[in-house]
Design a protein around this nucleic acid. Structure first.
Length: 573
DNA sequence: GCCGTTTTCGGCCCGACTGTTTTCAGTCG
């Protein structure tokens, strides 16, 4: 049975939590957590490596012991060690760690002294006053735990990048508007352009930390103040989003930005290098003994380590530090490189704007071309094109291109892949299109092999150019379908077709790790917005962020090409 | 539990804030 990387990671995360509650060596705990993170983001499925006999202990952070455990998981779907841990320390205790203010030590105490194993028992013990009888649990602590329980803000969900963006701009503007604030900027996973963010981290330059901190907690949309000090403060906005502020002086700005942009593993790796060279790096700068050396800008810090600056999107400790040391960082694609959008919908199917309106908006964005790709009719809700509609539609686009020359419109369609892998429009129609996107909109539950074969069969149709939103996942609401993406990528490469990076912020499909995989295979991709109204054409930036996180260079993204070159690339043998 | 040009032991990133304490442990990022 294929075991996903995420399943292995989940087991290691749980082991780390349980070991921590048991009071195990913190470095041992860290090793499990570190391994979980590595495997979670690993571009190759580890179980396939095990099957083919590839050495997994060559993965950084996986040693002999963890390699054996991974083999056990991939062979049996289970790990005896985890079962043993669970028999000593109830699994349900892990949930308690999600409650703000409760860490491993306190959870352990609650378990040992009151035999509390879950949230319900905790709530009861808090309300009956039993918890405050334990040493170390004063009135403030018990109250804040109770509050955290009431607010149900534990088990924190992550916020989509586009939604976080709506809160970021006004808050940063507010801070910048304060006379004693020189600069304010968002760091954290937001700056790394991760598809979702857990909270927002803001860095401000000021000599008046206490005043900034005060103004920050007084911000209009703040509903709760979690902490407030001279150099940092933490609040919850009404939306539920947590925002952390850090105030630094000019000399430490770069160091703080680096530190709070993360990722954590990237920072730790940099610090290892520093320690090896006899230096110390913290959020205030680079130090030798206790003497400040530098820290004003990120460039200077990377330069200190003989590296060019590494852009935030790459800072995941996935080889970017090694690449930087070799001066071999990828030349990442930028939004300005995009010359056209390869998927959008109009009123012909489920879009809200007309062809003319979409084209006008694309012209405003400076595009040379767009592909209009309305749905085929299989999925009833979208009222897509049947054969007759499609013929009329082709004529309509031809006429439109004759009457205007600002943006060339490619005749396109997003055709449904049916359950058996056949397509929802006849070849004769598809053959008249400039670009054909094929995509899965139904039968999400098929088993991996059947799903994979279904998609491959669709790609084998010589009219198909692009597999759109390849995994069909929706962030936070729909898991990717079970499919062997590696096989599909290999096939696409062999057949001369391509995969899409869907830039819709609720899809962002492909994921960053898969884009990285495509890069390694030499498989080109397109980035398209799948816009259903003209305003959504602006979502292209989210796709570009995602592509950058996947190490994509301009040369591997087809819609950075001129129209002629693009059409040439779309031709299949 | 991982790792190694200081390599098989002995390190492992580091600081701010809070609450409950009389000097610090726990949590968080």
């Amino acid at each position: 049975m294929p075991v996903q990387n995420s399943e292995i990671a989940k087991i290691f995360y749980e082991i780390a939590d349980l070991l921590e509650i048991e009071g195990a060596n913190q470095f041992r705990v860290r090793a499990y957590r570190n391994a979980a993170r590595t495997i979670e983001g690993y571009p190759v499925r580890v179980y396939e490596m095990v099957e083919s006999g590839e050495p997994i202990d060559e993965i950084s952070g996986i040693g002999e012991d963890l390699a054996i455990k991974i083999q056990e998981i991939t062979n049996t779907g289970n790990l005896v060690m985890l079962e043993e841990l669970r028999s000593r320390t109830p699994q349900s205790l892990v949930k308690l760690l999600d409650i703000s203010g409760l860490g491993p030590k306190r959870v352990q105490k609650l378990y040992h002294e009151l035999n509390i194993t879950n949230i319900e028992e905790l709530r009861e013990a808090l309300e009956s006053g039993k918890v405050s009888e334990i040493e170390g649990f004063g009135p403030k602590t018990t109250e804040s735990i109770l509050e955290a329980l009431e607010s149900q803000s534990f088990g924190k969900e992550r916020t989509r990048l586009d939604i976080a963006e709506q809160f970021v701009d006004p808050l940063v503007e507010y801070l910048k508007g304060l006379s004693y604030v020189e600069e304010a900027v968002v760091a954290g996973s937001y700056r790394r352009r991760k598809e979702t963010v857990g909270d927002l981290d803001i860095i401000a330059i000021s000599e008046a930390g206490e005043k900034v901190s005060k103004a920050f907690v007084d911000y209009d949309s703040v509903s709760d103040v979690i902490s407030q000090g001279k150099t940092k403060a933490s609040v919850k906005l009404r939306s539920g989003l947590q925002v952390d502020l850090r105030v630094v002086n000019k000399d430490s700005y770069g160091a703080a930005l680096l530190y709070f942009t993360g990722s954590k593993t990237h920072n730790i790796h940099l610090r290892h290098i520093a320690v090896d060279k006899g230096y110390k790096v913290n959020e205030y700068g680079n130090f030798t003994d206790d003497d400040y050396l530098l820290g004003e800008t990120e460039e200077k810090i990377y330069e200190f380590f003989d590296m060019p600056i590494i852009v935030p999107e790459l800072r995941e400790d996935n080889g970017e530090i090694e690449a930087a040391l070799n001066h071999d960082l990828p030349d990442l694609i930028q939004l300005e490189d995009i010359r056209g959008d390869m998927q959008m919908h109009t009123v012909e199917s489920d879009g809200k704007n007309t062809l003319k309106e979409m084209a006008a908006q694309a012209a405003l964005l400076g595009y040379e071309y767009i592909a209009v790709t309305d749905h085929s009719s299989h999925i009833g809700v979208t009222q897509g094109l049947d054969e007759e509609d499609a013929r009329a539609y082709i004529k309509k686009i031809k006429a439109f291109n004759e009457e205007q020359h600002e943006v060339h419109v490619l005749k396109g369609v997003e055709v449904d892949i049916l359950k058996d892998g056949s397509l929802d429009l006849p070849d004769e129609i598809l053959g008249q299109m400039d670009v054909v996107l094929a995509s899965v909109h139904s039968n999400f539950q098929l088993e991996e092999e059947q799903q994979t074969n279904r998609i491959i069969k669709a790609l084998e149709n010589p009219n198909v150019n692009i597999l759109a939103h390849p995994t069909t996942r929706m962030i936070g609401s729909r898991e990717p379908i079970q499919m062997n993406l590696q096989k599909i990528m290999d096939k696409a490469l062999a057949l001369g077709c391509y995969l899409e990076i869907n830039a819709s912020p609720e899809r962002l499909d492909l994921q960053d790790g898969s884009i990285r995989r495509a890069r390694e295979l030499g498989l080109a991709l397109v980035i398209s917005t799948d816009a259903h109204r003209k305003s959504e054409l602006a979502n292209m930036k989210f796709g570009v962020f995602q592509a950058r996180r996947g190490w994509a260079s301009r040369s591997m993204i087809l819609n950075t090409l001129s129209l002629d070159d693009l059409l040439e690339q779309l031709k299949r043998e």
